[in-house]
Every structure is written in structure tokens, then in C-alpha cells.
């Protein structure tokens, strides 16, 4: 996105130059532009990888109409941080040592990255990660959410996330009958 230098350059060379750029530009629903490492974007997001491979990246800003600027900034920030971080030796969570697909615990920087987010920003980032097919970011954000729920009753979780108890009295009774432990002390 610099001033035009090669005045009479052929269209062909321009295209090659674009393809060689090591960043891509993404545009949020509210029209803000963000640069992200092409390598990291392709590695971390199946959707962006598909767009890059399919040539549907727009140099003036690829439209991501579903994602607001705050969430997109976080996505881009995450990708760029990831591009610069050296993955540490596998820290396999002891809590799921049996699972067939062990979840690699968040790295220190990933922890810090999600810890600073407000509830709303976390929610928006989960939606963005889900939309962009970013498995790792989804894992890290969902890990954070699970930590916010740990040891809490349904009522306490509703309070933390401001969720309405949308069961009718009859439904509650039905659940209590089927699941003897449910709403034990609610």
C-alpha cells in the first residue's frame, strides 16, 4: 500500500508483486483495515487459507462482513503474535491425558492474550474464530471460558455470563426428575 513507484510496470509484474506480499489486508464489517501475516493467516485459519489459495484476497482489504473491528483486531493480533512465537515443547494437559486428541494447553502468551479481554470481546472473538475456522484460537478462547465456569453451579454460570434461565417450572421439574443431581442447591 505504498506510493506508486514503478510507473510503467506491466500488469503481470504487479500481480506477481502482490502475490509475493507477505501480508494480507482484511476489512472489518465497519470498514477498518488490518494487515496480517499471510503465512500465519493461512496456517491458523482454514477459511483464510482457502481465500489465499483461491486468489480471493483483495489487496484493498478483503471484506469480512461478519466480523467487527474489535474482534478482527484481536484475530489479527493473535495471528501476528503467533507468527512470532516459537511453539514450546508440548504441554499436554493432565486433565485429558486419556483423550484421543489431546488438547495442547495454552502457551503463556496465549493465556495473557485472552485474559485481558472483556466478556463481550471474548464472545466476539469466539464467534470470529469459529467463522474463520481457526481451530487453535477457538481452543484457547474456549479453554478460557471453561476456566470461568470451573466448579460453578448452573446458577453461578448464568450470573457470570448474564444468561437467562429459560426453563419453565415444568421443564425444571422434568430435568430434576431425570437428572437427580441437577439444580441440587439452586
Amino acid at each position: 500500500m505504498e506510493v506508486d513507484k514503478g510507473k510503467g510496470e506491466a500488469e503481470e509484474t504487479r500481480k506477481v508483486a502482490e502475490a509475493d506480499r507477505d501480508t494480507v489486508t482484511l476489512k472489518s464489517s465497519d470498514g477498518k483495515l488490518f494487515e496480517v501475516s499471510k503465512e500465519a493467516a493461512a496456517r491458523l485459519s482454514t477459511v483464510l487459507a482457502g481465500m489465499i489459495a483461491g486468489g480471493s484476497i483483495d489487496d484493498n482489504g478483503t471484506d469480512l462482513k461478519q466480523i467487527g473491528s474489535e474482534a478482527l483486531e484481536n484475530v489479527v493480533d493473535y495471528c501476528n503474535k503467533h507468527a512470532n512465537s516459537i511453539p514450546s515443547a508440548a504441554l499436554i494437559s493432565s486433565s485429558i491425558s486419556f483423550n484421543t486428541a489431546p488438547f495442547k494447553e495454552p502457551e503463556e502468551w496465549e493465556r495473557k492474550f485472552v485474559d485481558r479481554l472483556s466478556h463481550d470481546a471474548l464472545f466476539d472473538l469466539v464467534e470470529a474464530a469459529n467463522f474463520l475456522g481457526m481451530e487453535r484460537l477457538l481452543d484457547v478462547t474456549c479453554h478460557k471460558i471453561s476456566e470461568m465456569m470451573k466448579g460453578k453451579s448452573p446458577d453461578q454460570i448464568r450470573e457470570v455470563f448474564n444468561i437467562k434461565n429459560d426453563y419453565t417450572k415444568e421443564e425444571l421439574e422434568e430435568i430434576r426428575q431425570e437428572l437427580a443431581w441437577a439444580f441440587y442447591d439452586d
Partner: peptide, 12 residues
């Protein structure tokens, strides 16, 4: 366990 008695009961 936590899903059965906590998070999994929060809403429909």
C-alpha cells in the same frame, strides 16, 4: 462431571 452438573444445564 462439570458438564453434567454445571455448564450443561445452564439453558435450553
Amino acid at each position: 462431571v462439570e458438564t453434567l452438573m454445571g455448564a450443561g444445564l445452564v439453558c435450553h
